[in-house]
Design a protein around this nucleic acid. Structure first.
Lengths: 222, 222
DNA sequence: AGCCATAGTGCCACTCAGTGGCACAAGCCA
DNA sequence: TGGCTTGTGCCACTGAGTGGCACTATGGCT
């Protein structure tokens, strides 16, 4: 089952753990997609992966968590990527974040990650508790991102705590979510790649200025 | 307990229901604040309000729901407010939304609503599942807002579904959340009013352009 | 090679959120 | 007053998530 990955040379124990984790994610996405999030009990999932429920909860914090793993992984990779020294100095933070996100996308495992994200997002759209879990995770991650930014960059001491940089991150996250939505909704079973998603992210980010300037002409009342 | 409100003249049954609802919210916020969200079981809450658990779940969708009620109420009022014809035509949608939000704030019950929001937000900050629930609710509301906008205004048929107006709403929601955060964090037990919150909303909205332009000057590496 | 210390696992019993079903009471309408 | 509808109480049940303890596999050390 999917050995010899870029798992490189981790201690055996770690590799085993990662394999269990991946098996749980894949089986969960498969079962949930087939019978719905609520149509599958954790006992069944654990049975299928041959793992005790106790072990499941040592790997994931909740039933939602396992189904949201693909995007969790991406954001975790994003945080790592953000620690790398940026190419251009003086670039607006928003562009820096966008580029970091795009770079992260190119580095996700190209063969299976996009498919996992697709399944996960489709599930989230019809499973409120999954959606909630994903949003809360993004929110927590955003805080971490702001902390990293403050540590690495001189943002000129903004008033009201971290209002300005935090808004920057919020806008990027919003744009990413819109991109995901568009990417996920795309026609039926067309294969989706991380590049497609990157394109959508670029589009969404580019649409931000227009969204702030968008004029509201009232319709003629019917 | 808190009769003769702007409840006006609703059928008796409705008024009773609303009173039960309000009692549940207030008691929940009180108990949760005192002993923590997880430190109070629904059975205890229902006992305190003298209502059966079954009834609780006819009024609220989850334990989190009752604790998030204050902001739910606000967004519901916001949607209603958005149906009113706007004063100025041709105003940017973002400004229109912001003004609608500010107007909504002035119309919330001035005496007890702010205090409820404060308790609710403080709880949410240390209760992940409450935070998640609140975020998911906002997300769903955002969709409704976009639908209303599209129905009421001629937004010039944007490409990629509703990308542009949806981003507009997302940015407003982000700004509101930052405003809430600042307002909630404000010193200790200073009384907080809806006007204070309105001021914070104005500040956060005004900070949006700066957040997009914010330059990232790298710090000298330590 | 052999042997602990320790990280990780399985099992079991328990709490509590959330649901379905049915009988009953309170508000509403004639 | 009596039917009708709407909302409530009660009770049993499912399933997520947790704590505790005994057990096994791993990796370091001699």
């Amino acid at each position: 089952m999917d050995t010899a990955r870029p798992t490189a040379q981790l201690p055996l124990r770690e590799r085993k753990k990662l394999r269990t984790r991946q098996a749980l994610v894949d089986t969960a996405l498969e079962l949930f997609t087939e019978r719905g999030f609520d149509g599958v009990t954790l006992d069944e999932l654990c049975e299928a992966v041959e793992v005790s429920k106790r072990t499941f909860f040592r790997t994931f914090t909740s039933k939602e968590d396992v189904a949201c793993a693909p995007l969790h992984d991406m954001w975790t990779a994003f945080l790592k990527e953000l620690e790398e020294p940026p190419g251009d100095a003086g670039l607006p933070v928003f562009d820096l974040l966008r580029d970091t996100l795009l770079r992260t996308l190119t580095r996700m495992p190209a063969d299976d990650w996009p498919h996992r994200v697709l399944l996960s997002r489709r599930l989230a759209e019809r499973t409120p508790s999954m959606d909630a879990h994903g949003l809360a995770f993004c929110d927590r991650t955003s805080r971490t991102v702001v902390d990293t930014l403050l540590r690495r960059f001189d943002l000129g001491g903004t008033p009201y705590e971290d209002l300005v940089p935090r808004l920057t991150v919020d806008v990027l996250v919003a744009a990413f979510h819109r991109a995901l939505e568009i990417w996920t909704a795309g026609a039926g079973d067309t294969p989706r790649t991380a590049e497609d998603l990157a394109t959508a992210v670029r589009t969404a980010c580019a649409a931000v200025p227009a969204s702030l300037a968008l004029p509201a002409r009232p319709r003629p009342v019917p």
